[in-house]
Amino acid sequence: MLLTRDTLPDTIPDIAALDDLLCRPSQALIDDLAGLDGDIMILGVAGKMGPTLAGLAKAAQPDRRVIGVARFSDPEAKAWLEARGIETISCDLLDEEAIKALPKSPNIIFMAGRKFGAEGDLSLTWAMNAHVPALIAQAFPESRIVAFSTGCVYPFVPVTGKGADESVQPDPPGEYAQSCVGRERMFEYFSRKFDTPGRLFRLNYAIDMRYGVLHDIAMKIMQDKPIDVSLGHVNFIWQGDAAAQALRCLAHCDTPTTPINVSGHEILAVRDLAAKIGARLGRSPIITGTEQPTAWLTDVSLATSLFGLPIVDVDQMIAWTTDWVARSMPSLGKPTKYEVRDGRY
């Protein structure tokens, strides 16, 4: 079944159903990938978003070789991928010789990086977020490379505007986001040097039933914990839509590589989201803080012009999330930390 607005379920009963939904392709994704030649290799596939992105690629192109590369410290991720026909390669991307031994795939999605706990070992954060991209860019000069980045590379912008578009120069607080600028600069430098086509995929924030801004808010409401609205406005996108746009970027690469913002097209007030979620859960959210006039927000006009609006809208995400949390379904235990203003994660 193709993913369309008309085929979305009313509820997501369990993780298997969630995975199935996240791996369901749209016709637009199938068409874009059909126009590409060669294998698709996903580097850093074992993170939050990687497995279902790989599964989505395979579902969209069942006869194409899809390769997932990671250290696979969690063997369940490896088994999950292989059960869906995705080839797996165990590799430490800090090992230059191991990178050189990887297949020379013409299509690469780069998802490796470090965020959570970034302040705990900043040298490792910089190594993963800037050094590894340089190694990859040099090892695959003839590939299309869509490199995951973050909207956090931007400075704060007024909440009354449309958000930062791709013309706004990166100027973020905190070493995590600064290291992400380093990632982008490495891909940009080697893209110019080798004429490597690519895209810098500035994503914020992806939503899955097990994590995301809505999950964070819902969990705080259920646990009677305060919700800080100091960073009071956000935009976000369903993980399946984000994964589809990342894969579709392979058919929309620039030489040299250029950034593209990926998120929801609406700027949403955290206070309003808490009220809507609280009403569905039958609980009153505890609000603390005062909304500041600026936030990390992105203008996704470019992505919308290429891909159209996301299939899953905000109301659907709220309904799914509140239903999931109300049933005490699994959580990844990885808060987005969307409320952080100083860049320290």
Rank of each mutant, 00 (worst) to 15 (best):
F110I: 00
K115M: 12
A139T: 09
I109K: 02
K100R: 14
D92S: 11
E97K: 11
S149D: 06
A139H: 11
Y154Q: 02
L94E: 12
E97R: 14
I145M: 06
E82M: 12
N107E: 03
F148S: 10
C91D: 01
A118T: 04
I109V: 15
K104G: 05
A98D: 08
P141I: 11
V159C: 12
R84C: 09
T150M: 09
K162Y: 07
T125F: 02
V157W: 04
I145S: 06
A130S: 15
L122C: 03
C91A: 15
A101M: 08
A98R: 06
L94A: 11
S105V: 00
S149Q: 04
A147W: 04
I108A: 03
G113V: 04
K100T: 10
L122E: 15
R84L: 11
A101S: 14
K100F: 04
V146M: 04
C91K: 10
L135P: 03
A112T: 11
P106D: 00
I108T: 06
G163N: 09
T160C: 09
L124Q: 07
I136V: 15
E82Y: 05
S123M: 10
A77R: 14
S167L: 11
Y154V: 02
A118Y: 06
L124H: 07
Y154M: 10
L94P: 00
A98K: 07
A164S: 13
E97Q: 14
M128L: 15
D121A: 02
K162N: 14
I86Y: 00
S90C: 12
G117Q: 08
L102I: 06
F148W: 12
I145W: 06
A127V: 05
T150Q: 01
E97V: 12
F156P: 04
V146S: 03
V132W: 00
G113F: 02
G151R: 07
A101Y: 01
F156N: 11
A118S: 15
I99Q: 01
L81G: 01
E166W: 09
P133Y: 04
L122I: 13
T88W: 02
F110V: 05
A164I: 10
G163P: 10
A79F: 03
L93V: 07
N107F: 06
L124T: 13
A127N: 11
G85W: 03
A77L: 09
A79Y: 00
I145D: 06
G161Q: 13
A164Y: 11
D92I: 09
P106C: 00
F156H: 11
V132L: 05
E96L: 08
H131D: 11
L102K: 05
P133S: 05
K78E: 15
G163K: 05
K115V: 10
F148C: 13
R114F: 12
D95F: 04
C152L: 13
E119P: 00
G85S: 02
C91W: 06
G117K: 13
